[in-house]
Design a protein around this nucleic acid. Structure first.
Length: 403
RNA sequence: GCCGGGGUGGGUUAGCGGUUAUGCUAAAGGACUGUGGAUCCUUUGACUCGGGUUCGAAUCCCGACCUCGGCCCCA
């Protein structure tokens, strides 16, 4: 027997219905906010992901050499491909560009709850601007999606530029280590590489929940003013957030505002969304254009999303052996309108009804020699057992009324 | 990469050193060729894999694989 590769999943009908429903709802919000959907290839040149995605992600890549000797990698995330697409084909489009995407990504990691080797990301990018207005819109969009789905979440917003301002004299690799320690809120770790004064200031900063507090520590700067205006805009949007300068993000291309959304009821992998502002375009050989975006961990949302399956109308066509060809003709008409099942097993009338019940059909359309003679069908309501013999037109009318 | 809990038919489960590996459920067929959900009967179907201990292993030991938690990292 051949099993699934590790960290992958099969989606059975009920699960897939839920996922499709969730996908539809998320998609419709992006559409109403004026974002257009795009799609990029499942694999790209390895270089696209090793260039600036950070050390950590490079080690998790599903990378291989193709038959032409090219270094290829399955995509571990979608921001870099979208940026690549922009540079390749859309450099001269009017700005800002607003895109959203939904696709599978691959990372070679140890699977656990909410973490798979093949997983799906929903996300968006606003390319061509990095105003507080753009950042506010992107954050509000993420927050709106969570609210619309009825998912309980906490939104944390950080500002990398303010934090980096305190450690700007250090070499950049050391800065990265410090950011990681801050993300973990590891005070002891910070003390080991920093002087006590800077450590204390960083730690104070992490605990601050308002611009006033921050300005009290580092003074009023252009950057704090900017942060203040972003937060004011978010208040206008009615977004609930928590200022949290310990948010660091794993990907190294983020430059300014960063944010993360955590959800309840997910165990260790509670982050369902992450994003921020970045300058990735010049790195791939494009113009120096700022962008903002986020990615939602679709699989994690499916775990906490409450799905109410709709009560769809299913109709089973049931026939006797001498009426099978008439049943095909009736099925053809019914299939133009409803989910219709026609027996494929050569079963008897009783067994067909039995199956119709298991298939959760609400009606059975019965066709036997009697019905064929009269030019009618028997419509049986499987919920209450009542049945009537009517013309096909009448049958369709009755079914239409129940939808 | 690290630390733990687990893997018995499709699903669920009993057995925890000794007959033909148990029950429930699901599936296919039949009792039943013009009316479903019930009942009864029949059939199909499993000890994750590899080594070791033993007269004998589903059972004990070791390893691998898979899985579930947690760490790391991240969506």
């Amino acid at each position: 027997m051949i099993s699934r590769p590790r960290g992958t999943r099969d989606f059975l009908p009920d699960t897939l219905k839920k996922r499709r429903d969730l996908e539809r709802r998320m998609r419709s919000i992006f559409e109403r906010w004026g974002y257009d959907e795009i799609a990029t290839p499942t694999f790209e040149h390895l270089e696209l992901f090793t260039l600036k995605s950070g050390e950590a992600i490079s080690e998790e890549l599903y990378a291989f050499k193709d038959k032409g000797g090219r270094e290829i990698s399955l995509r571990p995330e979608l921001t870099a491909p979208v940026v690549r697409m922009y540079i390749n084909e859309m450099k001269n489009a009017p700005k800002p560009l607003k895109f959203y995407y939904f696709g599978n990504c691959f990372r070679y990691e140890r699977p656990q709850r909410g973490r798979f080797r093949e997983f799906w990301q929903f996300g968006c990018e606003v390319i061509g601007t990095q105003t507080p207005e753009a950042e506010a819109e992107v954050i509000a969009l993420a927050s709106t999606i969570m609210d619309d789905l009825g998912v309980k979440t906490a939104l944390h917003i950080g500002d990398l530029e303010i934090v980096r301002g305190l450690i700007k004299d250090l070499p950049s690799d050391k800065q990265a280590v410090i950011m990681r320690l801050m993300d973990k809120k590891d005070e002891d770790g910070l003390r080991e590489i920093l002087d006590p004064d800077t450590t204390a200031r960083l730690f104070d900063l992490m605990g601050m929940r308002s611009c006033d507090e921050i300005e009290g520590l580092i003074g009023k700067t252009a950057r704090t003013k900017r942060l203040r205006s972003l937060l004011n805009l978010l208040d206008r949007y009615g977004v609930l957030y928590r200022l949290d300068l310990s948010v660091a993000r794993g990907l190294e291309y983020y430059t300014g505002i960063v944010f993360e959304i955590y959800a309840e009821g997910l165990g260790a992998e509670s982050q369902v969304c992450g994003g921020g502002s970045y300058r990735l375009i010049p790195l791939f050989g494009g113009p120096d254009i700022p962008s903002t975006g986020f990615a939602i961990g679709f699989d994690r949302i499916t775990e906490i999303y409450k799905f109410k399956p709709e009560n769809e109308l299913r109709v089973a066509v049931v026939s006797t052996d001498d009426s099978r060809s008439e049943a095909i003709e009736v099925s053809k008409i019914l299939r133009g309108r409803y989910k219709t099942y026609l027996d494929l097993m050569g079963r008897g009338l009783k067994a067909q009804l039995n199956f119709a019940d298991k298939w959760k059909a609400r009606y059975a359309v019965i066709i036997g020699s009697k019905e064929v003679l009269e030019g009618k069908v028997t419509l049986k309501n499987l919920e209450n057992g009542k049945q009537q013999t009517v013309t096909l037109e009448e049958c369709l009318e009755i079914l239409d009324q129940t939808v």
